[in-house]
Amino acid sequence: MLAFEDVTRVHGDGERAVRALGPVAFEIRAGEFVAIMGPSGSGKSTLLSLAGALDQPSDGRVHLQGQDLATLGAAELAALRRRTIGFVFQDFNLLPGLTALENVALPLELDGTPGREAREQANEALARVQLERLTGRFPDDLSGGERQRVAIARAFVGPRRMLLADEPTGALDSVTGELVMRLMRDQCERGLTAVLVTHDPSHAAWADRVLYLRDGRLVDETCAPETGSGSPVLPLRG
């Protein structure tokens, strides 16, 4: 689904060049749920921007659904971002002049879904993050955590294949954070591919795989143990 081939991202040049990421190489299969952890400034957001074609590598290649992103034109990239990829940004990115419902429905409408159907899907997405009663509110009239959930609903709405989420649970209490993790997990069981950047190990633990970045490099990786009839956690549970 997503592959990074020796990808590096450098900002600026010469003396003042800053290497934000790389070189890194990894692959994420369709339907996989991967979490990215690492200290502040380690390159997590940079990695997500590259994965979502919001930024281009200085070196190396990013493949999405088998296509090298560098070979796609602006219109193809825009369609990809609108149709295939759902983003949850670190700073939510909601449009202040639109209600919660309109914010969530917008990507669908831009993609040609008729208004009524788009609103229906948007309503359903908002209900999944337990915001069914606040669909008419403007972002300024929502709490930080509610705004964050609108952004999450927007990323989930429609036939998205991949979700890229940058600290989507930062402003959420532990119960709501868990709700969002369950939602991501369930969507991945149905074929969504998700990349989650988080500082919270208990959220990363919902993923199939956890990648650790440090100074722009992948330094470690852990996979979830086999599910099902694994070793019992506690003495009396088999």
Binding site: P201, A204, V210, A224, P225, V233
Partner: peptide
């Protein structure tokens, strides 16, 4: 860290 994260993943499952 790797072992603790695996344990956390197991408990989360």
């Amino acid at each position: 860290r790797a072992a603790s994260m695996q344990r956390l993943q197991e408990l989360t499952q």
